[in-house]
Design a binder for these strands. Structure first.
Lengths: 304, 304
DNA sequence: TAAAAATACTCCATAGGTATTTTAT
DNA sequence: ATAAAATACCTATGGAGTATTTTTA
């Protein structure tokens, strides 16, 4: 196993096979004729058989040399192509990015961020998966997700959290509810109401924060795992609800949204595995951050 | 274009990708851990992006590294395969060999030599072409033939000739010819006969030697480009003929062959382009020589 | 604290350069 | 006599080794 063959040897040999002339081939390679001569001798020694027949008027390929010339060209091209591909992946121009999200984050700037990312990186395949917050954390740790958008993410070992966005709460009331005539509500106004809440299983911290923002125990009559369901149940008169401001996007006849005068806030957090170096993740984070920062304000809560 | 990537780098990276552990990978490669570490750094610098993520419990591939690992394996295999193929061609185990022959050489040991070569080198494709001597020389010079068997080859610039075989002449007579009763003939016995000769265009030297071996001008009534035709014409009573001893193989009713008591000899010569280095040529020459040397004697001339 | 990779340094093989010799036409 | 490849000789790069340091779980 002495004398390993290197790509340099193939390059030298190909240049020679193309010109059939040591001096010119060496010039093309940007090296001296003597260097090329030595490289060829090494290559031939490694192979064990002559590849070219030297004459005073240049060079002729032996049958073995002819074969190597045709094969080596393909090999070099393959190596170049592979490197190019690796570089595209390394730079985050290409690849597969699996993004998780949960709860109401699709009502925020996230769709814009996704569209923007798609436009900037057409070579990247985006896979979106809606999961509960807990499942997202597991998926991030075992590599099933590259990146996740959580509602009120819990600090968790092995996961890096960044808060992208923070928003106030609002109350959701049936149109005919006595409080529906008020433009704004204080938390205390809702004491004693029956509540329809977004499921606890979708995210413990988010659930607790929501419940806490009234400052008193809630009477929960129903939980639902999707915000449209919550809104619909309120419209059906089952109870009232509290939701992140962005849920106002889900306007629906028979339901009104009212800002809640409280300092409590709910956040949208971006979670990545600690120490993740996937460049796609970096690129996506940049796009997402840009879009969330561009509209840091609450979405306007339009009373319906 | 600094930092060209070499096969060594790919080998190092593959070993690392397989074990995901610098120390063990270095051991597999038979180099020190520090050497592997440096090679990887060089490779990553050349590519421009990290390929592995170092942790204290080993190593993880980045997406770019995963791609390179799958591609590099194929590249290395391809390089090995190509070299193996080149070596087979270089050693003469494989390839295409075009062999010319002319005149009566197929009546000599040549078929045996061909069979023996085929058996020893099943990977070689043999292409046999029957040509006149003059055309064979041209074909050898322009590369259309790798090797030729000539009857009485002429020394010729750029062609290396080797005499493989030399044989006496014999006379071919119609069965009813007055001389047919003699077991042997002297050249003088044939003075004044009408001759059927193998065509002059098939080989000038062979023709002249044949004519010269009687030591006097011949009366030629017919020329034919194939030995079976010559024999048939003799059988038809057109005339008598003179032929290399091996033509006695073409026994035919109504025709007799008689040894000619003359020192004149005709040769079978092997011709190759001067300076030919094709290993197939070398191998074939060896086989042919062995078969011609094994039976250097004249084929027995059986009076029919 | 322990395992693993990176670093520091040393040595030497070899790629590459310049100048010269050999070789074949 | 000329053009081209091989050779001789020199320098510097970098590959590989040993020993040590840094890092992180």
């Amino acid at each position: 196993m002495k004398d390993p063959i290197e790509i340099r040897h193939l390059r030298c040999f190909l240049a020679l096979a193309n010109t059939l002339h040591f001096t010119r081939a060496a010039a093309n390679l940007g090296i001296a004729q003597s260097a090329l001569s030595l490289q060829l001798q090494r290559l031939e020694r490694a192979i064990g058989y002559p590849l070219v027949q030297r004459t005073t008027r240049g060079v002729t390929l032996t049958p073995a040399g002819s074969l190597l010339a045709s094969r080596a060209a393909g090999t070099l091209r393959k190596v170049e192509d592979d490197l190019e591909h690796v570089r595209r992946i390394g730079s985050g121009q290409e690849g597969i990015l699996t993004v998780g999200f949960s709860g109401s984050v699709m009502l925020t700037q996230l769709p814009l961020a996704i569209e923007s990312f798609r436009a900037s990186y057409p070579g990247v395949e985006l896979r979106l998966r809606e999961l509960t917050t807990a499942r997202q954390l597991v998926a991030l740790r075992d590599g099933a997700l590259d990146l996740a958008f959580l509602r009120d993410g819990d600090p968790s070992p092995g996961i890096t959290l960044t808060t992208l966005h923070s928003e106030r709460y609002l109350a959701i009331l049936p149109e005919r509810h006595p409080l529906a005539t008020r433009r704004k509500l204080r938390p205390a106004d809702l004491r004693g109401e029956s509540f329809v809440l977004y499921s606890r299983t979708e995210g413990a911290l988010a659930f607790d924060r929501t419940a806490d923002c009234l400052g008193a125990p809630l009477r929960i009559v129903q939980e639902a795992p999707q915000w449209p369901t919550v809104v619909r149940l309120v419209g059906a008169g089952i109870g009232v609800s509290i939701a992140p401001a962005c849920v106002a996007e889900l306007a629906m006849p028979g339901v009104v949204f009212r800002p809640l005068q409280s300092d409590a806030r709910t956040t949208v957090d971006l979670a990545v595995p600690a120490g993740a170096i996937n460049p796609l993740v970096t690129n996506f984070r940049l796009k997402a951050r840009a879009h969330f920062l561009a509209r840091p304000a609450l979405p306007t809560v339009r009373p319906v």
